[in-house]
Design a protein around this nucleic acid. Structure first.
Lengths: 365, 365
DNA sequence: CTGTTAGCGCTTTCAC
DNA sequence: GTGAAAGCGCTAACAG
């Protein structure tokens, strides 16, 4: 015979706060036993007790409060994620994988967008800390390392996304930027481009951009007879990309070579595409183009934009797995997981046949 | 003289768990006073005490644990957000505004991506509940209303994004879909388009899509001599959009009118653009095009795609504000905040001058 | 104004 | 195997 009106149908959303005490009482056992059950210590309970608890929990629709659980043991099952810019498609794509992993492993994500702002970064860090997140996924500007270093000292679990941070020996998950940039550059060179401009945002303190530059320059050097230069652009400054491209074109006017641009990331790609459009320049006719980051619209513009696709979902997923390893006590030295990019060839990096230039090119078998 | 090595520099990340008890002891006051200070009850404390507390907190770098605070009063300062599809740019854009608002009001977001999956939706709901979020931002499929209704009964604060849900009287923040669709349709009609296809995903249970359809049909009807039809497409099914468009074209072949497509949202837009490209159709030459949702690449494709821009940031921000009002006890009846869209005219909806049709058009002064 | 005393819901020794 | 009791860090009556 049920007492009260406790005929609740196991509400998913646990409307009426059922507590462990009530379950214990209803089941006629101690809170401790319930707690053990929740903690998965099944072989510490007798079969009948187990069954009794199971059914009572189901009947009452009991859902333990993670807050309370976390208070004692610190296992909050919470992971904090700091994103440098939530408007950046890369960040969102990684977030996608991270969130999926969290869900799979029973964790919940607390998300903060730092909007590339130091102050907000600190505040967010503090906020996440105040909820006792068990670990942190960090994708942010490389500057203002102070608070990060502190975390490092505490051996608090942190995994860096995309960008290394000097002086912090946290795990890192991201793209193998050097290889990817080499691959990209080599592709352009193979297509006959000889004068290539790498367009990137400020290199200062951002290891991933530096890696891409390194790979780019290496590939240029290895090719021997190519010219490569880095165009550092400021996306905040309207028209800066257009100016930079224009100057690049002017500078290389003397060269007999074929010109191409390599965009350092998705946001740069967009600005380049916009700039070229406003300058009435078309690719690949006027200029070759290859962009880091595959975007939904990459196939759409002109004859399609060639890209280096990052395995963003995997990066996010792997980052969470790395973090969980640390959370679960892994003490191994710092590790970097560098995933490979994939070259997607489209029209923008395939130069048009030289219109009226005598003999047919010999196919190299 | 400081005792111990308590010379910590107010660590942002509060490495060494300082508790309220320690602060109280250090400051020589009771925990209650500290608690009052934290709660902002400043006029309940004397000036000297206030100062004493302030400095001690600063010196120790104390940061209260939200978990513990929430345990007692239920004020966890946590808001849960359920997103139907984190890969949908609309969702992310709204998330952007919501996150900003949270940060501004001292709340933290717990994010769950339901990936349009009922099971994940329920699990996420349960997870968020177990952390005692104070309220929920809900953007999801309209089906599976059961658990939602339950929440409604509890008067638990929930704000719906974009889509109404039958039988739940939650506040809603979103676009004024009817007006926006009217505006869109009227624009096409003004530009001389007479045969318009509204391309949308399944209308079933999704109020926002139904609203857009309603506005569309109204505008068509009001125009008098226009034809409008709804093309329901399934984005999961590859090539379905292309087929639908093709059939529309075939069906209207007899018509003397000018044809246009109105895309129901950003994801549909992308698929339409892709489909048209693969069918070698160009806009506005072969077909006019106007799309819901302004996307980063809207200006880029062809002569630019005309769009209806949603104030996504504002929607997210307003949704949080609505939610906070409820959280803070507002009891007013259900409210809908419908924001206006903005028409951005680009090439895709401006038909080319009829090529060789006699007399120059008279400029209307 | 300030402090004392109970808890919030759960985990965790430590006995039985 | 099982449970009683003592907290986790904080807030909220209730006194003074």
């Amino acid at each position: 015979m049920r007492q009260k009106s406790n005929t609740q149908q196991a509400p998913v959303t646990g409307a009426g706060k059922v507590t462990i005490a009530q379950v214990a009482q209803e089941a006629g056992v101690s809170k401790t036993s319930i707690s053990r059950y929740l903690g998965g210590e099944f072989d510490a309970l007798s079969e009948p007790l187990l069954e009794q608890i199971r059914s009572t929990i189901a009947r009452l629709g009991y859902q333990p409060s993670q807050m309370a659980r976390g208070l004692k043991g610190g296992r909050t099952k919470l992971i904090g994620m700091l994103v440098a810019d939530i408007l950046n498609p890369y960040s969102v794509a990684v977030l996608h994988g991270a969130e999926a992993a969290c869900q799979q492993y029973g964790y919940t994500l607390m998300l903060c967008n730092t909007a590339n702002d130091e102050k907000r970064e600190q505040q967010s860090l503090a906020a996440l800390h105040s909820y006792s997140v068990e670990g942190l996924l960090f994708n942010t500007q490389g500057r203002n390392i102070r608070p990060l270093k502190e975390l490092g000292r505490t051996a608090f679990p942190v995994v860096l996304l995309d960008r290394r941070i000097d002086g912090c020996d946290f795990d890192l998950v991201g793209l193998d930027n050097v290889r990817a940039a080499q691959m990209a550059t080599n592709h352009l060179i193979e297509q006959g481009y000889t004068d290539i401009g790498l367009v990137v945002q400020s290199l200062y303190g951002v290891s991933s951009r530096q890696g891409r530059q390194a790979g780019f320059l290496q590939a240029i050097a290895a090719a021997g007879n190519c010219h490569g230069e880095t165009l550092e652009v400021d996306l905040e400054q309207p028209g800066h990309v257009a100016t930079a491209v224009q100057e690049f074109l002017r500078r290389r006017r003397g060269s007999k070579g074929k010109l191409a641009l390599l965009a350092g990331n998705g946001m740069v790609s967009l600005q380049i595409a916009l700039a070229l459009q406003s300058m009435k320049l078309r690719f690949p006719d006027d200029l070759g183009l290859l962009c880091f980051d595959e975007l939904s619209w990459s196939p759409l513009v002109g004859s399609g934009i060639s890209t280096i696709e990052q395995p963003t979902y995997d990066i996010g997923f792997a980052a969470i797995e790395r973090l969980l390893a640390r959370i679960n006590g892994e003490r191994a030295p710092r590790r970097e997981i560098l995933l490979d990019g994939r070259l997607i060839k489209r029209g923008s990096s395939i130069p048009p046949e030289p219109v009226a230039r005598a003999r047919k090119p010999v196919r190299s078998a």
